[in-house]
Each structure stands twice: as C-alpha cells, then as structure tokens.
Design a protein around this nucleic acid. Sequence first.
DNA 1: TTTT
DNA 2: TTTT
Lengths: 157, 157, 157, 157
Amino acid sequence: MVNRVILIGNLGRDPEVRRLENGAVVAKFSIATNENYRDKSGEWQSLTEWHDIVMWRSLAERAEGQLKKGMPVYVEGKLTHRTWEDQDGNKRKTTEVVANYFRSLASRRDGEGNNSYFPSADDEYPGGGFSSSSVESDNSSSEAPVSSDAADDDLPF
Amino acid sequence: MVNRVILIGNLGRDPEVRRLENGAVVAKFSIATNENYRDKSGEWQSLTEWHDIVMWRSLAERAEGQLKKGMPVYVEGKLTHRTWEDQDGNKRKTTEVVANYFRSLASRRDGEGNNSYFPSADDEYPGGGFSSSSVESDNSSSEAPVSSDAADDDLPF
Amino acid sequence: MVNRVILIGNLGRDPEVRRLENGAVVAKFSIATNENYRDKSGEWQSLTEWHDIVMWRSLAERAEGQLKKGMPVYVEGKLTHRTWEDQDGNKRKTTEVVANYFRSLASRRDGEGNNSYFPSADDEYPGGGFSSSSVESDNSSSEAPVSSDAADDDLPF
Amino acid sequence: MVNRVILIGNLGRDPEVRRLENGAVVAKFSIATNENYRDKSGEWQSLTEWHDIVMWRSLAERAEGQLKKGMPVYVEGKLTHRTWEDQDGNKRKTTEVVANYFRSLASRRDGEGNNSYFPSADDEYPGGGFSSSSVESDNSSSEAPVSSDAADDDLPF
DNA sequence: TTTT
DNA sequence: TTTT
C-alpha cells in the first residue's frame, strides 16, 4: 500500500547520529515546515509544524556529512507510528517520517568560509576554522556526484 | 514550505462526522497501510500502520457519503501535530493527516445490493435493505462527475 | 534532483511486453486520467489525458501478470523525454513515465469467473473460460504478498 | 483521477510571460532535472531531462517576479499532453507540466548585489547594478509572506 | 537552455 | 529547535 511523505523544511538541530551494536547507523533530526496564511481578520499568521525524521544506513551517513542545523532540506519517506512506555509507565505515541531519500537545498555558496550554515552574531558553533570534519565532508560530498537517486532506480531508464 | 502526504489504505471504521457550533463539518477516521517484506530468515512479514485522517467542510461531507469501513481510499494531505493534556494532566501528542483531497478506490460493483462495503457473516450494519441513505449517496455520488479535483484547480489547464 | 510522477488511471489496453536480446523485459501501456470540471456556463466537462507508461524488469513481469485493459492502477515513476526520427526524417518527441512502482486498484472480486477485467457484451477477449493463464496469474499474484514496496525500502523501518 | 508531478530542477531561461487578450497571464519555461548514476563499467554518468512548465494567473505573476534563469525551483503540477500541427501540416505532440504550486529554492543570499542569479565571468545580463526591476521584485517578494500554500488550502487546518 |  |  502507498505511504509517502514529502517535506521541505529547515533542520532545528544538527542530525544526531548513532552507531548501533549491530553496525547499523541511524540519524535523527527534526525539520520545521512553515505555512503562512491570512486569518479571518486579514492578518498574516504563521504556523510551524515540527516533523521527526529518521534515516538509516547510507542515508544516515550522508545526512551526517551534509546536513546541519538551519539548512533547508527536501525529504521523502513514509509515515510510521510507534507506541512505547515512558519512565512513569504511561503509553506514549511517536510519529516519525522514515526517509528513503533526501536532498540538501542549501546552495553551495552558503556557509563558505564558515563552519555553520547560517553565520550570525550569536554563533553557537564553538570550534571553528579549518579542521571541522563536518565542513570538509560537506564540501567533498557536494562535489561528488550525488548517488541519492540510486534508491529508486540506479539505471538511467 | 512543502508538506505533503499521500496514502492508499483501508478505513478501519466508518468516518465519524461532527457538525461544530460554528457550522463547520469535520470527519475523522483511520486508515491502515500494509507493507509486506521478507525478514532476514526469508519469511514474509506484514506491517500495518494506522494513520489518523481529518477532513473539513465539503471533503468531510463527501467522506460521510462515500466512505465506509473497509473501503480502500486514496488520501492526500499534510502532516500536522498537536499537543494536548489528557485527564491525568499528562502532555500527549497527536499526529493527524489533514486531507485536502481523497478518492474512493472501491469499484462501483462493490457493495451492490448491500449496505456494507464488505458483506460478511458477522455483518455489523444494523439497518439494511433499500432505504439506507449511505448506500444511496454512495451510488449517486459515483455516478455524478467527481468534483474532487477542484481542490487544486478548477479550470482544465 | 527530484522527478516524481504519481498517476491513478485506467489502462487503455493490455500491457505490451517485450523480451529484449539482452534478456531485459519491458512492458508498455497507456493509462487515462480523467478530470471533471465545470465550464464557465456551469456545464460539467470531462477531460482525458493519456499517459505512456514504461516498466522494466520485475515491474514489467508483474505488470504482465496483474494488469489488463480497463483496470484502474496506481503508478509512480519519473518523467522522461526522448527525441527520435520517424520514417519521414521528422524529429519527433516522446514523453514517457518510467515507473518504479505500481499497484493494481482492481478489487479482487472484479473479473471473478471471467477472464476480462470488465466483462461486457462486446467482449474482445478471444479465449475464454477457465484455463486462461492471465486470469490465473492475476488471481495468484493478488494472494501472494506484494513485494512491490521493495523498490524504496526492503526493511520495515 | 490522480495526476501529480513533483520536480526540483533549474530554469534553463527566464520565464517567458504573456498577457492574453482575455486578461489571462501565462508563464512558460523549462527546468532541467539531473540524475547521476554509475554505468556498467562503474563510470559516473549524468542524465538531464528538460521539462516544459506552464503557469497561469497568479502563479505566472509570481514566477515572473521570483524566478530567473539558473535558479533551482520546486514545482508541483499535473501532466498534460496536447497535439497540434506544425507549419508543414505534421501532427506534433507536446507534453507540459501545468503547475499548481511552485517554490523558489534559491537562498535569499544568492544574487545579492547582482541582477543575475548566478553571477559569472561570461555574465550575459546586459544591464547591471541597482535599478534592475527583476532584482527588486525578487527581493520584495521574498520578504512578504509566501501565499503559495493558498493553492491547496488557505486555512491552517 | 540549467545546475552540482 | 528552524527558516523567510
């Protein structure tokens, strides 16, 4: 059955990447989608939805290298729901978009000469300068051909 | 920003329709999407996700007339999240797909001469026979042109 | 870059399946999408678009077994364009949707006891009766788990 | 019936905008989607598809103000096909994506202090500097709330 | 005719 | 928690 989600939004934080015991890699982060609309009185209102994104394996590796807090990103995936118990024994429900494709929408120019995506006065990135591996992998990865379409089809027809 | 969900699944129950004080109409129901996959040992496994669907206004009216428990349906909408407090004061989160389009995938033949979509021994539909308004509206609605594409564009170009 | 097409329509003919010299299998067919709208004078008008669909490999094999003229089908793919020369040396352009997923929307009940999808007085299916292999494969295929989601992800997370 | 196209690509030229006698506005342009894949010998290959996009009314006006040659853009629409006769009386077929939504993916920083989207040595934009109206409308439009979601729903639920 |  |  068909279950597809398509989102374009901005990362609220850097992806959180974990290596599991069995060798699997998983990346998690949230993205915000914003919608502007006029209310009854004609005023512009803004509405933000935060979506939890999960990526596995090579997608997770690529997310770790390419995505940073604040960046705009295109995400495709499916809608999944899990129930679990919190520490108080309450049943909780979590909804996540498990991605099968993503594409950074940051222009290559963004972040040049800087290790954060959106440089600002209250820059919260502690380290700096040259040897930031995330910046390096970001650059290198955006120079290599993007193999991301391989998910749906790896032959050109 | 882009926020799109596309689902094809089956209704778990008849839509629950409410008329609000302000005249608005809202329909709610869940649909199940099923996925089959082979696990590591090569066994076929089945995975079901239940998605909460919300429809407003004319969509809700049309859902009330056309959709019934068990029916396959195509739904397009956007992913929304709400937080609320349950009776114990615990913060709960709800995720819903707010639809902007749907289309029944039941063939016209289904349900003919019967007021339930999937007739069965343990038929739970109390009334029966001819004068069921839901059957009537279902039939008539599938004979009339479907105005549902009007949502995205109501001119043919 | 993102290139996605999603269609729900009916097959104009049975899929045309070819086995190429190199062993590849390809299936081609057209599907019609219909749109109803009100024109300026308030009259209901109907608009039909015919889309050329191409499927390769296991999709093509599955199409051959499951899809028949008239059936409703959900198709996902990408938009491709080719130019070629006709016999008069004129440059011609062809646009095709190369599918990476499809799902028959015919209910299992449809076509029961009949080897055509829409039985009718002017039935054009020559053979008949029981041993039609297309009917058999159609039935059996709808009983087996659909592996079609394997395209985007073959693990249940 | 469902007929959806989703594309992310780059404009090959500035949109071509026409005002028709009846007051309607239409914008046309092509966007390229690129796909990279490894061929059998392991070499990276690149494949480009050019898609013809058509926008009407307010979408066309917004395209005129916001989109320029080279820009990345997200486009949603439907697949349409037209046949016509060229000057030699040959029947020709044209496929177009009629958009019902678009969103520029250019970052606001791009093109600052410049009247072209991608400044380059062989810059083909003749005028320059400050008073370029296209830059002005581009800037102003990106500061105003984007009303683009109004197409599918203009209320926040 | 674009871009990475 | 993001962005425009």
